[in-house]
Design a protein around this nucleic acid. Sequence first.
DNA 1: CGATTGCTTGACTGGGTTCAAGGCCAGTGG
DNA 2: CCACTGGCCTTGAACCCAGTCAAGCAATCG
Lengths: 253, 253
Amino acid sequence: MSTKQKPSDVAGISELITAVPRNESGGCAACGARTQSICAALSSGDLPAMSAIRSDVRFAPGQSVFFEGDPADSLFSVKLGVVKLFKLLADGRTQITGFLFPGDFVGLALLNKYTYSVEAVTAVELCKFPRVEFEALLLRFPELEHRLLVNASNEIAAAQDQMLLLGRKTAQERLATFLLMMRKRAASPTQANTVILPMSRQDIGDFLGLTIETVSRTVTRLRKSGAIELPDPNRVIIRDEAMLTDLSGIEDL
Amino acid sequence: MSTKQKPSDVAGISELITAVPRNESGGCAACGARTQSICAALSSGDLPAMSAIRSDVRFAPGQSVFFEGDPADSLFSVKLGVVKLFKLLADGRTQITGFLFPGDFVGLALLNKYTYSVEAVTAVELCKFPRVEFEALLLRFPELEHRLLVNASNEIAAAQDQMLLLGRKTAQERLATFLLMMRKRAASPTQANTVILPMSRQDIGDFLGLTIETVSRTVTRLRKSGAIELPDPNRVIIRDEAMLTDLSGIEDL
DNA sequence: CGATTGCTTGACTGGGTTCAAGGCCAGTGG
DNA sequence: CCACTGGCCTTGAACCCAGTCAAGCAATCG
């Protein structure tokens, strides 16, 4: 969408980003996201084959990684930062289908074109693989393909949860679910109950199928009810987890 | 959900069901769904290995195949009929995450429990694989795993489309999208513009994140606008495809 | 036939959207 | 140093689309 830059360091964001060590040298073995990413499927002896076809790419907040409809000739693994996946309607209505964090993989496409867009939410560093070479790698290493299948299964389960949220949950239930979800991905490294929200209210609305105003009002309501605290707009402290869990409609985490 | 039986032959349903030849003998080679199902990944020489672990199961409309939370010890391929996948909230609100038709695969689970429920919409015949044996097959035939990955990718793309629908589309856009979607899966074998809807209004509502009343009203509105015709509640004739496509917000089919 | 089930239609309500200010903070420039 | 500006978030008021509640209707079945 917009290519405007956000404030270079919204409170807490750098904390989140630096939670994963940077990969200065560029080698896979030194990559901070290695243990969580698809590369973890390969033994250290097989890593060089993957390392040989990869390259690093960086994006500033708001920059586009690719657009829906672009030729799908690359795949990416998130090393650092947060990106969003989204789809658009002709009149601009946006649905964010997911936020990706370090270790997450993106770009798997069957067709020759991407079916969604990807944009940097924070400053990000991605590991880029050319599609043709990557597919050759898949043939060579079945364990890599297995890992992708596991990934895809998780993604499907998450998508089904999100469909339940979008189709049937109230605004308050959506926010409660979202905050609990984010705590698992973006808890402050120092305080487990503090969730850092690297994305804007607009992004949260576009993810939850709400308007920015409803997001704001609902967060305020959760704050007034004592469930959460808001040191600043991008930082949420979960005060009453039981209340959030009740509201979220989640059975088991 | 309910285990009540629907009318044994809602108009047009038998037409849809019998569109795929029945597999009386039980062998994979003779299976009507073979060319569309995951088994298509195997050469006819490798089929017996898969045939050896499979068995047929049948369900009447409304019967449950499995529930969310059940131990995930089987996988299924739809041979005949239609099943629905859904998730529930504590108070009974339901979100159907997909309808499966002959050739579709269901049951892939990473955890030991299913994360959603499956129920027969029409009379169905499923091909059942015990999980342990199936996983052994995956190790033996990488092309089978590849096929599952392709399947999963399609499912993810469909899920993202559905998130856009649930999060951002109006009731009319949802119905238009749904009818066009169903035409691709359940067009009458004899008339391409006639879509057979094997599921109830309640199911359609639970799939589109609407109430049964809104579904009914919106279908009526589409009928009055001339976009569709309704010979009976379970049969829709698409009269003005361009109008539906405009309404649906779909760019390219 | 009466009872049941599924679909449709009508009247009313309400949660979330829309429209419109207002507040807060960081960055900029006089 | 402070007024000005632009983003982003919050809050308020009015509106509206879809939900809720309640009949009514048609087809099926016992």
